[in-house]
Amino acid sequence: MKKTVRLEGLGCASCAAKIENAVAKLNGVSAASVNFVTTKMVIEGEDARMDEILTQASAIVKKVEPDVVVRKA
């Protein structure tokens, strides 16, 4: 299952890479990519764990870039 979220206020490209790497390492995630230009993050992961994955991903975003707001795309 693919889920897309918007990372509003994403201004730092190296942070985008950090977020991408950290989210990709989460349990149940098969692939993650952050598009710095469109500020979208696409997460591919197990259907059943998607809610949990999204919560963890938001926590990662908050830690790396506290000013970025995660929104539904």
Partner: peptide
């Protein structure tokens, strides 16, 4: 801070 380096590459490609 490495941002100056990182920022323009995805922009150029996109």
């Amino acid at each position: 801070c490495p941002c100056a380096l990182v920022i323009s590459i995805p922009l150029s490609f996109f």
